[in-house]
Amino acid sequence: MQANSPFLFDARSIAKRFRHAAIFGALEALGEGESMRFVNDHDPLPLIEQLRRRYQEQLHIAYVQHADGVVVIDFTVHPAGTAQGCGSGDGTGCGCSGG
């Protein structure tokens, strides 16, 4: 994986109505090869499905911890050319949102 530690994103501290938008924004800010460590109080299955549809194979999703009341997931952006999907190819992350 990468030498740098993942950026922490603790969804438990964000109001539920803003969580998905904040998560998508944080993922869009990641550069190729960077990871975000997502922490939540439940398994975000609808979010995972949205991410898989939106980012396809460019986003690697790995559960780190799955216990009662704590779910930790690492989201890693694949470098351009190593996975099929929607990559911008310019080193700026996925670029799905166009901004």
Score class of each variant (00 low, 15 high):
Phe38Ala: 01
Arg53Asp: 07
Arg37His: 09
Ile23Arg: 00
Ser97Pro: 00
Ser5Val: 03
Thr76Lys: 08
Gly99Ala: 13
Pro44Cys: 07
Asp43Lys: 07
Glu28Trp: 08
Ala62Ser: 10
Ala3Met: 07
Ala83Gly: 03
Ser5Asp: 14
Leu8Lys: 12
Ile61Arg: 02
Met36His: 06
Gln56Cys: 04
Glu32Gln: 13
Arg52Thr: 13
Phe7Ile: 15
Gln65Phe: 01
Gly33Lys: 03
Ile73Ala: 00
Ser88Gly: 11
Leu47Tyr: 00
Gln2Asp: 13
Gly89Asp: 06
Arg19Glu: 12
Gln50Lys: 06
Phe18Cys: 14
Val39Ile: 15
Ala26Phe: 08
Leu27Ala: 07
Ile48Lys: 01
Arg12Pro: 11
Leu8Phe: 12
Val70Phe: 02
Leu30His: 09
Val39Asp: 01
Phe38Thr: 05
Leu8Cys: 09
Ala62Cys: 04
Ala83His: 10
Ser35His: 05
Ala29Cys: 14
Tyr63Asp: 03
Glu32Tyr: 08
Tyr63Ile: 12
Asp10Ala: 08
Cys94Pro: 00
Phe75Glu: 05
Gly87Asp: 07
Tyr55Thr: 04
Met1Asp: 07
Gly81Ile: 11
Ala29Tyr: 07
Val77Ser: 02
Phe38Ser: 02
Ile73Arg: 00
Ser5Tyr: 07
Asp74Cys: 02
Ala3Glu: 13
Ala67His: 13
Pro79Glu: 13
Phe24Gly: 01
Pro44His: 02
Gln2Cys: 02
Arg19Gly: 05
Arg19His: 05
Val70His: 05
Ser88Asn: 10
Gln58Arg: 08
Asn4Ser: 15
Val64Ala: 03
Arg52Asn: 04
Gly89Met: 05
Ala22Gln: 14
Leu59Gly: 00
Gly87Leu: 09
Tyr55Cys: 04
Gly93Asp: 12
Gln56Asn: 05
Ala11Thr: 10
Gly93Leu: 10
Asp74Val: 08
Tyr63Trp: 01
Phe18Asp: 15
Asp43Cys: 03
Phe24Asp: 11
Ile14Leu: 10
His78Ile: 00
His78Asn: 12
Gly33Met: 05
His78Ala: 15
Ala15Asp: 15
Cys94Gln: 06
Pro46Lys: 00
Arg19Ser: 02
Arg17Ala: 12
Pro44Thr: 04
Gln50Pro: 00
Tyr63Val: 15
Arg52Tyr: 00
Leu27Ser: 09
Val39Gln: 08
Leu51Arg: 01
Arg17Leu: 10
Arg53Lys: 10
Val77Asn: 01
